[in-house]
Design a protein around this nucleic acid. Structure first.
Lengths: 147, 147
DNA sequence: CTATGAGTTAAAGTCGACTTTAACTAATGT
DNA sequence: ACATTAGTTAAAGTCGACTTTAACTCATAG
């Protein structure tokens, strides 16, 4: 009789998983304490994570990247655990997050413009294109940005 | 002999200036303590700010918005106080800030894509376009984003 | 001229998001 | 077997960026 081979999903212990996700071990434990991720335990009591857990963490980090706080993520995860009944709540939460994010995004673009102008101005001074005593306000006025 | 009228710049006391800049009084004092802004004093000892101070604060807030920390702003301000000898240093600092900011910007855009996809997925579930048991991973795969 | 609302200072407190410490147990290479 | 290296917990500490408190003084309308 041939040996039966059970294909088991890869198990990552916390150290390897930390490397994989770019988080630290303590941060993973912290996220777990906050209920954001639920690793599994091997028979010996050590945590292990799977590739599915990695996808989940990545998704969470993207949400976090859009400005969601840990508290908001906890709310989202709590609703998710409640099942389909909370789908509209989750959708609403994500839409609110997107609204805030878009707003922030516009401000970022404006700041980027200002930063670029300032860099150009300094570059001009360094390269001698801008007279020694032309101020930045002056220079800005010479561009056509609204403020 | 006609009365001489000296046109004086408007003076904002801290409360009015806080409203004008969107910062709080304590925050303005904090920034002052960190050397980011130097308000003036009237004869009675109260702080006052001018429109030029407001422009300066706005500029600082834009830099802050691009990800500069208070410490970096302090460095920038310190160099600025040293005069033209530090222009290349300041230019270099701002360019570094821009590099980091652009990098962050790309990550933000990616997160935005994920957030949008997730919202679309929820919307699909709510509207019934997506079958009850199609997971997000599945849905993502049906789009053509790289990850 | 006095009540009420700003403004003053220095110092302590808060908050979010981790990080570090301490005191342990488990796994692994030689 | 033993020395490293990795993992375990709960609790305390850190850090950046403010915010709050306390104990004052100053400004101004009635």
């Amino acid at each position: 009789m041939a040996t039966k081979t059970v294909v088991t999903e890869k198990r990552y212990r916390i150290g390897e998983f930390a490397t994989k996700t770019g988080l630290s071990g303590p941060t993973l434990r912290y996220y777990e304490k906050e209920g954001l991720v639920k690793p599994h335990r091997s028979d010996n009591g050590l945590r292990y994570y799977t590739d599915a857990d990695a996808s989940w963490i990545k998704f969470l980090l993207h949400l976090k990247g859009t400005g969601m706080t840990i508290e908001q993520l906890k709310q989202y995860v709590a609703w998710r655990a409640e099942g389909d009944a909370t789908i509209t709540k989750r959708l609403q939460l994500l839409k609110n997050v997107r609204r805030g994010f878009l707003q922030e995004f516009e401000e970022l673009q404006h700041s980027m413009t200002i930063l670029n102008d300032k860099i150009d101005w300094y570059q001009g001074k360094v390269d001698g294109h801008i007279s020694d005593n032309e101020g930045f306000a002056n220079y800005l006025a010479s561009l056509n940005h609204e403020e």
